[in-house]
Design a protein around this nucleic acid. Structure first.
Length: 343
DNA sequence: AATCAAAGCAACCGCTGCTAT
DNA sequence: CATAGCAGCGGTTGCTTTGAT
């Protein structure tokens, strides 16, 4: 506990890297790989700590980095992903090949945040600033719960995204016009090597959105359908047609990975009244558990599971973004990304 | 040309979670 | 089970560059 910074141990260099140091690090990693980062500086002949070497490599020296200014499409995608993922920079960066979490974080803090504010959008909640002010004036108590506050707990964060009926996602106006469905396919990289590109994701076509016929990600179907090794075509997620907050997720329990540590019946935060099961499926409806949980508040240190995230993602994307295309992508990502470690 | 403020960016710090022992 | 070491993440700092006056 209370470990000292690694650089205190001996007189290690700090601050900006010299070209010579970069060269040593590149040379070493190119030949030997990084292996254990703590041993890299010694082996590479650097007076740096392993942590510093790792950061330099990941954020600057890696050969697959894109560099250069962010395109409009990239910026829009960041905004969109931030609306769902919050400040999970590494997860956002995973969707932007060649970009680092640090780079995206810097862009967000120095540029995007400001642009959103200027557009009248609160960058934390992605709500119109005017709406936040109205809530504040009407009820200070509600404001306390709804006001964005820094939290590492995604459940807490979810509870602040109070979703009034007929909610209109403000960032929709900000970015949506510049996107075509095909713009997304290149950005979404699925990291589970066991899940190839042909997952059979289908989505409801009747939303006035055209799909890219050449993409593996989209094809015509009446339902959002997901399939892969674990889900075997049976995991069915569908959104209810209600315009308010009613959203349901239906996933057959047998299609959860057998070694999945998350029991679909024991998910924290889902009220049992929202869960019904029969011999062959599990249904969770009206996922308002994130909001109507005041009598049974969620502990701050609640374990945020991938499953919760999945439900939350369906909930938020359907309500706030309102475009089936984007919803599908993000849900798709979370399912495969979320369970990837179990394969 | 000089000064100052804002913006941009790289790097550091502290913490968390995972894993090996 | 407890502990230590490590990788990774997100917040923050501080230096450099750019733009305005």
């Amino acid at each position: 506990m209370g470990r000292h910074s690694c650089c205190y141990k001996q007189k290690l260099r700090k601050g900006l890297w010299s070209p010579e140091e970069d060269e040593k690090l590149i040379k070493h990693i190119t030949i030997y790989g990084h292996g254990c980062w703590s041993s890299v500086p010694k082996l590479a002949g650097l007076q740096r700590c392993g942590k510093s070497c790792r950061l330099r490599w990941i954020n600057y020296l890696r050969p697959d980095l894109k560099r250069g200014t962010f395109s409009l499409e990239e910026q829009n995608l960041i905004i969109e992903l931030h609306a769902v993922l919050g400040n999970r920079w590494s997860q956002i960066a995973a969707q932007l090949p060649g970009r680092t979490d640090n780079e995206i974080k810097n862009l967000w803090n120095s540029s995007i945040k400001k642009k959103l504010r200027q557009s009248g959008i609160d960058p934390t909640t992605h709500k119109p600033l005017s709406e936040l002010h109205q809530i504040e004036e009407k009820s200070p108590e509600i404001t306390a719960a709804e006001k964005p506050k820094p939290s590492s707990n995604p459940v807490s964060r979810a509870r602040y995204t109070g979703r009034p009926e007929n909610f209109h996602h403000p960032t929709q106006d900000f970015f949506i016009d510049s996107f075509k469905p095909s713009d997304f396919s290149g950005f979404l990289s699925f990291q589970n090597p066991n899940h190839g590109p042909n997952h059979g994701l289908n989505h409801e076509p009747n939303h006035g959105l055209s799909t890219n016929p050449n993409s593996n990600l989209f094809s015509k179907s009446s339902e959002l359908m997901v399939s892969d090794n674990h889900f075997n075509d049976n995991a069915l997620l569908h959104s209810m047609s209600s315009p308010n907050l009613s959203v349901s997720a239906r996933i057959k329990p047998e299609n959860f990975p057998s070694d999945n540590p998350i029991s679909p019946f024991g998910v924290n935060g889902i009220s049992t009244s929202n869960v019904s099961s029969s011999s062959d499926d599990l249904q969770i409806t009206n996922c308002n558990f994130l909001e109507n949980n005041d009598n049974n508040s969620l502990p701050e240190d609640i374990k945020w599971t991938d499953y919760q995230f999945l439900i939350e993602t369906i909930f938020i994307t359907k309500q706030l973004i309102g475009t089936q295309l984007i919803s599908s992508n993000i849900i798709y990502y979370k399912i495969f990304g979320g369970f990837s470690d179990n394969s």
